[in-house]
Design a protein around this nucleic acid. Structure first.
Length: 424
RNA sequence: GGGUCGAUGCCCGAGUGGCCAAAGGGAGCAGACUGUAACUCUGCCGGCAACGCCUACGUAGGUUCAAAUCCUGCUCGGCCCA
């Protein structure tokens, strides 16, 4: 690993799309610890799997002895990055933004080591150094050093100028704010490298230019490629929406399922990109996967690792136990402990014995289906299993028995589960 | 401000007085196949106390036995003129 260097390893893993002077960056990384930052804008109160690559990249650098600076965009989030957006964004109000920043900070803290030491991670918020700058100061200190020509050259700006949607001055200025962040972190924390997704390239190089012009020193930038899916869909989106890192929004079980159900063609690309395991281990897993893709070894391994990282090993273990029961064994023979694990991972509704008689209404109320009509349809199509047995029309949810005198396990289709807990 | 064209179900998009809960496609759901996959095939895909009823074609009215379809006002959007 050391023989190809960190940058070489990242390249091999498919994590490098572009870098400024690769040889110089490699030399700098080899010569000693470096400070680097990755920004996360608080557009929602949780990060999603799309943000995971940035967090993991910081983690990789930290594991190699470098100093990571995850940045929450309390200031830039107020403006909105036009990169990759086809139209003007709606601005968030101040309270929402603050709430989002607070929530995201916790998630950013999850994957990195903050215990004091030579390469402890430092969480920063660009609102801290941006909120109180006056417009005039900003124009003199930042605006003066970046030409509009340069800003116009940016791909996302060009696209928006040519579209009917236009581009507001606010979003146009985003690049300046991000450039200023890089300069600030460089000046105050000696951060020399900024990384981001490939759509961040223009913003990153703007920062490097600003640093050279105002601080008289060099800095580095690197981007990772856009994570794509083999079927052309957007990464991180499932039928149910985005896959969030927040357990309230996406349960650890669902999170694990996201990785488990990944396409073969994708998992061999994602494994080196996401897994923190060594390249040797990753290669071995891929080889095994290609021998017998039906075993889902690669998916299983990646799912276990990502779920542990984001939700902790206990939650990951529970999610796995639950999945084993749901997808494997006959639920009627499952132990109380096993069902408890299922109960903690699958959506659950508490009901009375009487409720169980009104099948359609109960399924609709619990959100298993959208309406009574859909419940009826699903059952007619033999799409509903109760405790592992197909429910026929006219049968009640209680007709297949109550597991351990407590639970009724409902399965719609192949992968959607719901547990009813019967209270006496 | 004037003119003109448009607004249809989750999305795109036909329909231009009765045969319209509304063609077709996409998405989604279920079944067969399978590897908790892909592909393919089949069915479903507004709601309900369901061979019927109710709600729906931007919005509020009107004409008619009958309107998504015709008329009027309004709202929003495209284009053209000022």
């Amino acid at each position: 690993m050391t023989n190809i260097g960190l940058l070489g390893e990242l390249t091999t893993r498919g994590l490098i799309h572009d870098t400024t002077d690769a040889a110089a960056l490699e030399a700098r990384l080899a010569s000693g610890p470096i400070g680097l930052y990755v920004g996360f804008d608080p557009t929602a109160d949780s990060l999603h799997v799309g943000h995971l690559l940035g967090q993991l990249t910081l983690r990789r650098f930290q594991m190699s002895g470098h100093r990571p600076y995850p940045l929450a965009g309390g200031a830039t989030g107020m403006v909105g990055d036009p990169s990759g957006k086809s139209e003007e964004r709606n601005l968030l109000d101040a309270e929402t933004l603050q709430h989002n920043v607070d929530s995201i900070k916790k998630q950013l803290a999850n994957l990195l080591d903050f215990t004091p030491g030579a390469n402890a991670a430092t969480l920063v918020n660009n609102a801290d150094w941006t909120a109180n700058i006056s417009a005039l100061e900003f124009l003199r200190d930042v605006g003066k050093h970046i030409t509009v020509n340069q800003m116009m050259a940016k791909e996302s700006v060009k696209n928006r100028l040519n579209s009917e949607n236009g581009l507001s001055y606010t979003e146009f200025s985003y690049m300046l704010l991000q450039a200023n962040d890089f300069r600030h972190l460089c000046a105050t924390h000696n951060v020399e490298l900024q990384m981001g997704g490939s759509d961040q390239w223009g913003n990153i190089t703007a920062g490097i230019d600003l640093i050279r012009r105002t601080l008289g020193r060099g800095a580095f930038g690197a981007t990772w490629p856009l994570v794509t899916r083999s079927d052309g869909q957007k990464f991180g989106k499932t039928a149910g929406g985005a896959v969030w890192l927040d357990a309230q929004r996406t349960s650890p079980y669902q999170f694990r399922q996201f990785w488990m159900q990944m396409a073969d063609a994708d998992v061999v690309r994602y494994l080196p990109q996401f897994s923190l395991a060594s390249l040797e281990e990753v290669r071995a897993l891929i080889a095994e996967h290609e021998q017998a893709p039906e075993k889902r070894t690669a998916q299983r391994s990646l799912a276990a690792e990502m779920t542990s990282l984001v939700h902790g090993t206990d939650a990951a273990h529970h999610a796995e136990t639950a999945a084993d029961i749901l997808f494997g064994a006959d639920p009627t023979t499952a132990s109380i402990e096993a069902l408890r694990a299922v109960a903690s991972e699958v959506p659950m509704t508490t009901v009375s014995f009487a409720d169980l008689d009104d099948t359609y209404a109960l399924l609709a109320r619990a959100g298993v289906v959208a309406s009574n009509s859909e419940a009826r349809r699903t059952i007619q199509q033999k799409g509903l299993k109760v405790n592992g047995k197909t429910l026929e029309e006219g049968e009640t949810l209680a007709s297949k028995g109550i597991l351990h005198e407590r639970w009724v396990l409902v399965r719609k289709g192949k992968t959607s589960y719901h547990l009813f807990e019967v209270s006496a």
